[in-house]
Design a protein around this nucleic acid. Structure first.
Length: 867
RNA sequence: AGCACCAUAGCGAAAUGGUUAAACGCGUCAGGAUUAAGACCUGAUCUCGUAGGAGUUUAUGGGUUCGAAUCCCAUUGGUGCUACCA
């Protein structure tokens, strides 16, 4: 018997060897095709969680597989190291963010190293280091020069707990995405990025991203929210005022029965200010919270200004309201209401008894009315003067044309997407490199003064931005006039850092430039024409579907337009979004959540508390979360079962895009498999020190050996295909099937031995991307190889062994299987029919019936239609 | 409310129009081995039958097809995203 597999010792040994031999360090090697695989970098919280294990294992399988396929693989890692938690830690325990962050990086790196990932650590970056963020400041100066970055006064989402500004995307249900505190509105001068200028390109290029999940593309499309329509003016009767509105349904103009302004529309105050009840109305609008429940229930309310408005094409007057459901920051902050064809307008009109006049009539409708609900479908225009009888599309075009002719409006496009506000009133971020001078205004920091580094001596004893409180840091002289001036104390949104790190990895240590263009070109230029320039495979959580992934796409385009990179329009060629890791939940009799380690089964098979013995209720299987305590610590798993078992289990069973349920029995099963494989191969009678596997005489092999060869070659193919398709669960299933075939194979003579050698050697190479430590150990101990397996070529398969010369076909009668026949693979229809008819079961089944049709799909099926 | 995705043994899943639907794993049961437990090995695990064998079956209902888990429509249930975006 072989010795028991010493997982800990063996895994450590191989990791040390890989590190010593620098096997994962890569450079631009033009003699090889390249492959760039990247997983979303982690925030250095200090400890990895199971989601990280899944994420980085997936990437590592791809990296090791592609390496085996002969690619020069770039597989880097770094730290998304700026952001609020470091400041919160500083406030809570008085530890400096820089120290806290770097300590966390050190401990997390240790954990990641123990997973045995094939990472080129020489390219490691931490976004909190000035060597990284300094380049961001350099780029920002260029963005400023090009007008991509600009400053504007604007209402911002103010998080009263974190004391910071949030982006629209960071507000969820009117609450801060981190603090969950109700967001307030405040006016501040902020830096913005003109992402809206790129809205069309961001939208159009989504079409290129055919290796992205559809759902992510759909989410981004909705987020950008392009809508084409008409912007035009109404005259307020008896005044010089004109109200500008935007609509996507100009065709319904003649169904208009009111005009509505947003409560914070500048004209609202002008028209209604001072009128009875106006202030109370505005107050009511504001008091109605922004929470989901409030919006859901909120009635549509309006305030009649007493004014009416007319449109030149309409020839009719409609009342002007101020209404709570009109948003100031979309379109023009004013709409015309068509109750018959918009449900919101319908609700409003019903409440205030405004006319509901249908102007689009569906086909075949008689006495059509919209009294109960709005009709938004297709139809023919009616009650609409010169556009009567037109379809919706023609009517839209006609109204836009007439407005343009009369100079009262124009066709235009609106986006839901807003410009990206990047200022944060925070310390632990990249300082925005501008200076405010009383005489010169906003002055960019001269490039030779970069980077602007964060001061180390800061305090966190009062709320707000420590940079603001710092006694000297913000004082400086104006680069233009030399007078005393003040530094910008805001820092960038941390999505800034994660928007370009994928390029920095290509040239991670460049002190002078964000990246060297040629180095980026080497790593992003595709080796297949199916792809465009970009990271070949990006892997991460779907929670970044809009924020990070949209900003990174935008950043790529502006870096291109500012010549920091070349000819690259999109950052990520292939995107894979992994599912969550879930776990059962446990509660004691009092309803208190318990850790999985606290729950054990007693002798009667009941779940009880490990220490108290009290009964435990098993709850639903949900995403691991600290509050529900249904978490497992990867470090425990790695210590107990080893990296290979953790990697194997996390890839088994569930397809990577779906949620994975973490179970104790599952990880144990993976661990057992590893031990079993080791024991089997160490005991097996296989040739050592083999360099080739000569099969001199195929025909001399026994049938069993031939069968083993077939599954060997089949698995080489199917497993490669599965990894390419990201179906890691299938790859493992095929691998286990292959193992079962090898372990049950009984070697009866020496002639068959090369077939067994071939199978074992193939198996070890195939399992390497998933369980690299085990593979190396078997490669060296069981096969006696002296070179390292890491980087060893994937075996090739023999097509001829995948097909056999005879095939078994099912014979159906009226689609129901009745018999099987064995035919030569190239049999023609006549042969097939003869063979089928010769079957006794078929004859019996056909007895007394007429043959109507004979269907023969070679290699697939025979179907006999009888009647 | 809208959009998208999903539904297969006790569980996780394979099979994407055809060769006995359920590979592979987990769990369960029986047997072997063991001082004992675990690990390990062998077998079983939709239903009926000792067995040969027969029958049922891919959430539900329809449709297309010689043939449907697979394509189309509707319903139900689940998940995600968006949420007064004019």
């Amino acid at each position: 018997m072989a010795e028991r597999y010493n997982i800990k010792e063996t895994e450590t040994k191989w990791r040390e060897k890989w590190t010593q031999a620098n096997v994962f360090t890569v450079s631009e090697d033009k003699s090889k095709p390249k492959y760039y695989v990247l997983e979303m970098f982690p925030y250095p919280s200090g400890r990895i969680h199971v989601g990280h294990v899944r994420n980085y294992t997936l990437g590592d399988v791809v990296a090791r597989y592609k390496t085996a396929q002969g690619f020069n693989v770039l597989h880097p890692m770094g730290w998304d190291a700026l952001g609020l938690p470091a400041e919160n830690a500083a406030i809570e325990r008085g530890e400096h963010p820089d120290k806290w962050t770097h300590e966390n990086i050190a401990s997390m790196k240790k954990q990641l190293l123990s997973m045995g990932l094939s990472i080129d650590w020489s390219r490691e970056i931490a976004t909190c280091d000035a060597e990284y963020y300094g380049h961001e400041q350099r780029m920002f100066l260029k963005f400023l020069e090009k007008g991509i970055a600009y400053r504007k006064e604007s209402m911002v989402n103010w998080d009263p707990v974190d004391n910071t500004v949030l982006a629209n995307e960071q507000v969820i249900d009117g609450k801060g995405w981190r603090t969950n505190a109700p967001v307030e509105r405040r006016k501040l001068s902020q830096w913005f990025m003109k992402i809206t200028d790129y809205a069309d390109e961001l939208l159009d290029d989504l079409k290129k991203l055919d290796r992205w999940p559809d759902k992510v593309r759909i989410m981004q499309e909705n987020w950008i929210g392009k809508s084409v329509g008409l912007q035009f003016k109404w005259n307020v009767t008896g005044t010089d005022h004109k109200i500008e509105v935007f609509t996507t349904r100009p065709d319904t103009l003649f169904g208009a029965s009111f005009l509505a302004l947003a409560p914070d529309h500048p004209m609202a105050k002008e028209l209604a200010g001072g009128k009875d009840g106006f202030d109370a109305f505005i107050q009511e609008c504001q008091s109605c919270g922004t929470s989901e429940a409030a919006i859901e229930k909120a009635d549509k309310i309006g305030f009649d200004t007493g004014y009416t408005a007319t449109h030149p094409l309409l020839g009719r007057e409609v009342p002007v309201y101020i209404a709570n459901f009109i948003l100031m920051d979309y379109g023009t902050g004013a709409v015309f209401g068509v109750p018959a064809h918009d449900q919101r307008d319908h609700d409003f009109a019903s409440k205030y008894n405004l006319p509901i006049l249908p102007v689009v009539i569906p086909e075949d409708a008689e006495n059509f009315t919209c009294d109960d609900e709005a009709y938004t479908g297709e139809g023919t225009l009616a009650n609409s003067e010169f556009i009567d009888g037109m379809d919706v599309e023609s009517a839209k075009a006609e109204i836009i044309k007439r407005c343009e002719e009369t100079n009262t409006g124009f066709g235009t496009t609106q986006y839901r997407l807003r410009d990206w506000g990047v200022s944060r009133q925070r310390y632990w971020g990249c300082p925005i490199p501008v200076i405010y001078c009383e005489d010169c205004g906003v002055v960019p920091v001269p490039e030779d003064q970069l980077p602007i580094e964060l001061p180390e001596d800061v305090t966190f004893d009062k709320p707000g931005n420590p940079l603001e409180h710092h006694p000297t840091w913000k004082n400086c002289t104006c680069p233009k006039c030399g007078k005393a001036a003040r530094r910008e104390t805001d820092t960038f949104d941390t999505f800034f850092e994660s928007s370009w790190y994928q390029f920095r990895y290509c040239d991670a240590k460049n002190p002078d430039l964000p990246v060297d263009k040629d180095k980026v070109l080497y790593w992003v230029t595709p080796t297949s024409d199916k792809n465009f320039r970009g990271v070949d495979q990006y892997i991460g959580g779907v929670e970044h579907a809009v924020l990070h992934l949209l900003y990174a796409r935008f950043f790529t385009k502006i870096m291109r337009d500012c010549s920091f990179i070349e000819g690259t329009d999109e950052p990520f060629n292939g995107l894979f979004t992994q599912g969550m890791v879930t776990h059962e939940t446990y509660q004691d009799a009092q309803g208190k959540w318990l850790f999985p380690t606290e729950a054990v089964k007693n002798d009667n098979g009941e779940w009880v508390h490990r220490e108290t013995g009290e009964p435990i209720t098993i709850g639903p299987i949900i995403k691991m979360s600290k509050s529900k305590k249904n978490v497992i610590d990867p470090e425990d798993i790695l210590n107990t079962y080893g990296a290979d078992a953790a990697r194997l289990f996390i890839l088994s069973d569930s397809p990577p895009e779906r949620d994975l349920e973490w179970t104790e029995s599952g990880i144990e099963g993976a661990w057992r498999f590893i031990n079993k494989v080791y024991a089997t191969f160490m005991d097996m009678d296989i040739s050592k020190n083999q360099t080739t596997m000569p099969i001199t005489d195929e025909s001399a092999l026994s049938d069993k050996a031939k069968k083993l060869r077939r599954i060997t070659h089949k698995t080489i193919k199917t497993m490669g295909d599965a990894i390419e398709a990201f179906a890691m669960n299938k790859a493992i299933a095929y691998l286990r099937e292959f193992y079962n075939a090898i372990s049950t194979f009984k070697l009866q003579n020496n002639t068959d031995k090369p077939a067994l050698d071939e199978a074992v050697r193939a198996f070890i190479i195939l399992i390497n991307p998933i369980c690299p430590h085990l593979a190396e150990e078997l490669w060296s101990s069981a096969l006696g190889q002296t070179d390292m397996l890491a980087g060893y070529a994937w075996p090739s398969y023999d097509e001829n062994l995948l097909v056999s010369d005879t095939i078994t076909l099912g014979v159906q009668i009226n689609g129901k299987l009745r018999a099987t026949i064995t035919l030569p693979a190239d049999a023609d229809e006549t042969q097939a029919q003869e063979a089928a008819m010769a079957e006794e079961k078929i004859q019996r089944a056909m007895d007394g019936k007429t043959l109507r049709k004979f269907i023969y799909v070679p290699g697939r099926i025979v179907n006999i239609v009888v009647g």
